[in-house]
Design a protein around this nucleic acid. Structure first.
Lengths: 348, 348
DNA sequence: TTGAAAGCGCTACCAT
DNA sequence: ATGGTAGCGCTTTCAA
């Protein structure tokens, strides 16, 4: 490989260069850049286009942004960037934003300090709007009350605000998701339904446990402590396998296990199978999240769809909508979590 | 929810406001913003910091960028944003960039037109550098030869350039990955190794097929057409299951199947198991990509690790390195693909 | 130790 | 139908 490095000192071609080359004023060039060409002589237009082309001119959006105060950029603050599901939302956020002429500036933020820093940065970079894609870990949002009045609109996904903030919000119904599972299992004859709960640091865990409790009550099933175990998805795989094994040893054995998420469910599935039991004939296993791999497990995993991708889509649309209409009333949307039945809960 | 929408008309607090409030010149404020405070009177510094705080001032990076010609932003053009593996690379790219004071502007580009548009946009937004995270689908890069001299440095991942371009490059050794698998299988007594190849539209497919061929030759194994089948990972699951079933019907039956990727492998695994055969005792199944779910399949999937995340990390470091040292010689790095042995190829 | 002023590249207003 | 010019919010000489 040669050392054909590019020159970085090269001076930028500016609107002024184009104007001179075309023999017109910068105003006229600016007009063509901004599609104000109706009342323009055919020949000038052509001359300018020709100059733009031959000079290989690329207008500076930085300069433009300084005057228009718009950057055509939206900031995305994403809490758990290592979680595939969160990243999946990008599939929708970016294309939707782009089709509306906006780009996405990505910031990951694992904790409150990161998050504050990210917000500051986005303010300084003058993004036109911000989307928060958060986890349900409790976090103090007091600092958000102190944003300057020039701060852009914000849409918050998956977060219970502890302060009154003027932001659009999107959440989903974890409680309803678990209730749907339990009801479905009940209708299919299950009476001993075990729950692997997530860590208490997350609102989602609490909500799901509550959904479980309510659904049992609804169907007059007894709430049995032995059937509730902690399976922290941040802990290693072996601990889940261990917990699953314990659950299998409970007498009477549960007829269904609702796991903390799909990954835990996959490990439970394997543990159950290696214990010589059949899924779903001997025991049903159900996940949570509806990750793509659910469909190619053996048996394919019944799970609960979390509308995170949908939330990303909606958030982007809401944000774009608000940019267009700043004073529309705030929205707070709760999306449903839907049961997705596959093989692991039904006879094949 | 009330209609507590934020004002967007609010005028930005500028450096001038701060200067006035502190009773100093803008220059002096600028100095503190840029940490040039050595030769500054303690009291002025304090007055300025106080003014910044009480006015809730956030400097405009847009204005700063206009004069410094640096945006502290790197553009990432990602080809297959729907592929989890590509997104995973973001886990590294964003944090590394951020720790060096840069942000990531994300563009997805499914085809050549998208890509050109993205590049134009990034030029206009004046990003300091660009990373291409491409698929190995053949694509014409002629347009990249026509970038203006003011274009920023570029690092290209996973692409064979058809033109001589002054860019840093990162690739990986698909051929070597397959050769490692075949050698490993050979050493474990396998003599009938089937290959599910990917679509011919991708360079990776060709390279892997070539690796397969060379490895067979190396071990004096016969190349048998019956053992090579197309499993296009863009086609529906059923087609792979069908292809796998056909492979099982070949006589003599292959003792190992090397799938096009992990997803195909998972479906093959299931197909084999449902045909009443045991993995790995009756037949070994091997994936490609090392996606996270490999570890919780039953049996856990042996696969080939594609260093895409590593490539993202390296690309970011190379880019930052080049920003610091524009004239360093160009690099072209080929990363290895490594065999990752799990249960699906060995007795449990 | 601090300040005045030019200028980054563009848009927008007001002329003509 | 086209041009002159102020100004967006900052950095950066140069001067004091």
């Amino acid at each position: 490989m040669g050392s054909l490095t590019r020159q970085r000192l090269a001076k930028r071609v500016t609107i002024k260069d184009v104007a001179e080359a075309a023999g017109v004023s910068v105003t006229t060039v600016s007009n063509v850049l901004n599609q104000r060409t109706e009342a323009m002589a055919e020949t000038t237009l052509l001359r300018i286009q020709e100059a733009i082309h031959s000079l290989n001119y690329h207008p500076s959006r930085v300069a433009r942004s300084l005057v228009t105060r718009q950057t055509a950029t939206i900031g995305l603050i994403i809490a758990e960037i290592e979680t595939p599901l969160f990243l999946q939302a990008l599939n929708f956020i970016e294309p939707i934003a782009r089709s509306a002429g906006h780009n996405v500036l990505l910031c990951s933020a694992q904790n409150l300090a990161d998050e504050q820093q990210a917000v500051n940065l986005l303010l300084e970079k003058q993004v036109d709007g911000i989307i928060f894609l958060s986890t349900s870990i409790y976090i103090d949002d007091e600092y958000l009350t102190r944003l300057p009045p020039s701060a852009p609109p914000i849409v918050i996904i998956n977060r219970t605000l502890t302060h009154q903030l003027g932001f659009d919000q999107i959440q989903w119904d974890n409680q309803g998701g678990v209730m749907a599972v339990v009801s479905y299992l009940f209708q299919h004859g299950h009476r001993r339904i075990a729950l692997l709960r997530g860590p208490a640091t997350r609102r989602s865990s609490t909500e799901r446990l509550e959904g479980y409790r309510r659904a049992l009550q609804q169907h007059s099933l007894e709430y049995c402590e032995d059937y509730i175990r902690l399976a922290d998805f941040e802990a290693p795989q072996e601990t889940w396998a261990q917990t699953a094994a314990e659950l299998l040893a409970v007498s009477p054995r549960p007829s269904a296990i609702l796991a903390s998420n799909d990954i835990v469910a996959a490990v439970v599935l394997r543990t159950v199978q290696r214990a010589g039991l059949r899924v779903p004939q001997d025991i049903a296993v159900i996940g949570y999240d509806n990750q793509p791999f659910c469909t190619f497990l053996n048996p394919a995993l019944t799970t609960v769809g979390v509308p995170i991708v949908e939330a990303g889509r909606l958030a982007t649309e809401m944000l774009l909508h608000r940019l267009a209409e700043p004073y529309r009333p705030l929205e707070r949307v709760v999306l449903p979590c839907s049961l997705i039945v596959r093989e692991s809960s039904e006879a094949i």
